[in-house]
Amino acid sequence: MVAPGAHGLRRAGPGEDFWQYRPASQGDSARLIDWRRSARSDAEFVRDRESQTAQAVGLWISAGQGMGYAGASDRPSKRDRAHLLALALAMVLLRGGEKVGLLGQPARAGRVQADRLAERIAAITARDGDGDAPAPDQLRPNQRLVILSDFLDDPAWVDALLARAAGMGVTGVLMQVLDPDEETFPYAGAVLFRSLSGVIRHDSRDAGGLRDAYLARLADRRDWLRRRATGAGWHFGHHTTDHPPAVALSWLYQVLAG
């Protein structure tokens, strides 16, 4: 597994990873000399390490009403799972020395920031509408961004976000979080479909007859998101709430370090 945390700048400086040997020069103290390497020649050599910097990561979690859906009482809602993933990812990144913050708020490092993020994520409240979108003007140059959403509402905001991100050197991840019922559409017979906000309603007499069309549209939406993400130099992933969160967390952890 590739640890996030400090990222090499490909130049000599403070860090942990070996960069290069160079001949010692006036001003280098004796403690900087690599005596083992120097013993193999008539000159003294210094072992340079690669300069590293903490990476700023922004987290955004959809607060749309639709994220409150859970298809069964023994499963978490999409919102609860997205909050868990965001907080767990933040803890891992902070442990690696990263600066982390919710989008639109300062990204900081350290244990105090972990407590602060836990409080702020828990305080996120649902919006009035079914969908939600991040504000592109909250992006900051060269940060990495993790977007957690079900992406079931109008996706036009994704294009706007990625276009602005490209001009600012912002890269990141789109992570789709769905309930397994939204993945398989296990309905049959007469079913009243209603969005959690109550704005959208559809009374079907043959829900099973809608399954193929629904699954095709879901696949199209997922392919669209993947193409948009890849074209912008981002990553796209998806997670279902009946799967272990550790799998999604591990994937997020690795792609952010890539």
Rank of each mutant, 00 (worst) to 15 (best):
E182R: 12
A122T: 01
G110V: 10
W157V: 00
F151H: 06
S41K: 03
H83K: 14
A54W: 02
A123P: 00
S51F: 02
Q65T: 08
W157T: 00
P180A: 06
R40Y: 12
P23G: 02
R222Q: 15
V46S: 04
K78G: 02
L225C: 11
I33A: 02
M175E: 03
V199L: 14
V57N: 02
A257W: 07
W157I: 00
G233P: 00
A257C: 11
M91L: 15
A166D: 08
H7N: 11
S149D: 02
A12V: 12
V199P: 02
S62P: 13
P141I: 04
L161V: 01
L256W: 00
D74F: 13
A123S: 10
G172H: 02
W35K: 06
R75E: 00
G189T: 06
A82C: 11
G231N: 07
P23H: 07
G27A: 13
A63C: 12
A163E: 07
Q105R: 08
R221S: 15
D203L: 12
A3E: 09
A39Y: 07
A190E: 14
V247W: 08
G58H: 10
G231F: 05
I124T: 04
G104P: 05
S197E: 15
A118N: 03
D153F: 07
A133C: 04
P106S: 13
P76A: 14
I124A: 01
R227I: 11
A107T: 10
M1N: 10
E119G: 04
Y69D: 01
A3I: 11
L192Q: 13
R201Y: 13
R221T: 12
Q254W: 07
A72F: 06
D130L: 04
A24F: 03
G231L: 09
Y253S: 12
A257I: 10
D159G: 08
V100F: 00
P244G: 03
P244E: 02
Y214T: 10
L103H: 07
A118D: 01
A56F: 02
Q138W: 15
A90Y: 03
D128L: 13
